[in-house]
Design a protein around this nucleic acid. Structure first.
Lengths: 152, 152
DNA sequence: CTAAATGCAAAATTTTTGCAGTCCC
DNA sequence: GGGACTGCAAAAATTTTGCATTTAG
């Protein structure tokens, strides 16, 4: 459903990230670049802790609280996205384009999918009265193929 | 967007809850009944802690961990729903019927809405390969009317 | 009766904060 | 150089667990 971003794609994302970061008034520190890079190449919507573990190999002094702070500030400026989830741990993604999520209730894996029919549909009238909608996304819950086959 | 459930509605929900609970093989304890009742009459998708605070007036010995355990087991048996959220605190609702959520990024309020057009739409082909979908829901993010008007 | 549920206390997990030192712009 | 950022440590917030006691069925 999602395809592995290759090196070329990753460099493109990094190239877009730098000006976006400056635009947001954020300083381009080594840590921020690496945290974004790690998230951008991740396929699994990692948590802060997961990212920290992966980054420690490259950045042994990187602290977990910096990862938390950085993800929070990236999200605030919409450079990344925090996934709507039912888990206790927050999960993040670098892809802020229109897409949706399917979550497996067994293995917890989050998979992206697109659905332009929905993206282009007008929200129902009743929502108009609620306020200003900035984003809309779908979350599917169920069993991924792998878990469904492993006798659940 | 949602209407206040009156006393009659609440009693109906309680009447439906009891057999559903037994069906799930769960014992009908005083605490469980009161936790469900409190959630069923709540309009704000409360957290475990919020529910506990509200219930303490009536049940002074009710412990927070029982609230956590009870909500978790209710959700496991699909007697209640845990809302997909970006917050660190889990939020719950007794309404397990088809509906969707609009979340205000300022005040954090969660509002329900319905959209049968979406509910009845076929998911895109690409999802078929993912696995078995049990539930699908929409989350809107933005500013509720009140927060939008208070100059955000 | 008996297995399940509760309350208490303690721990584990996840996230946030204060502050001194460091680094980008 | 100065304000933003980081790392460290500590704390806060949220959720989970072990165990003795109580309770529903």
């Amino acid at each position: 459903m999602s395809s592995k971003p290759d090196q070329e794609m990753l460099e493109k994302k990094m190239a877009e990230f730098e000006p976006a970061c400056r635009n947001a008034g954020l300083k381009l520190t080594h840590q921020r670049l690496e945290i974004f890079r790690e998230l951008a190449q991740a396929l699994d919507h990692p948590s802060a802790e997961t990212l920290h573990n992966r980054l420690r190999r490259r950045l042994p002094t990187l602290s977990l609280d910096t990862v938390y702070r950085t993800l929070a500030i990236f999200e605030k400026h919409r450079l990344i996205n925090k996934v709507e989830t039912v888990e206790s741990q927050g999960r993040y993604e670098a892809d802020i384009g229109r897409h949706h999520h399917a979550i497996c209730r067994l293995c917890g894996a989050i998979t992206d999918f697109s659905w332009s029919f929905f993206d282009e549909a007008q929200l129902p009238e009743v929502v108009k009265g609620w306020g200003r909608v900035d984003r809309k996304s779908i979350t599917l819950h169920g069993l991924c193929r792998k878990c469904a086959h492993s006798g659940a």
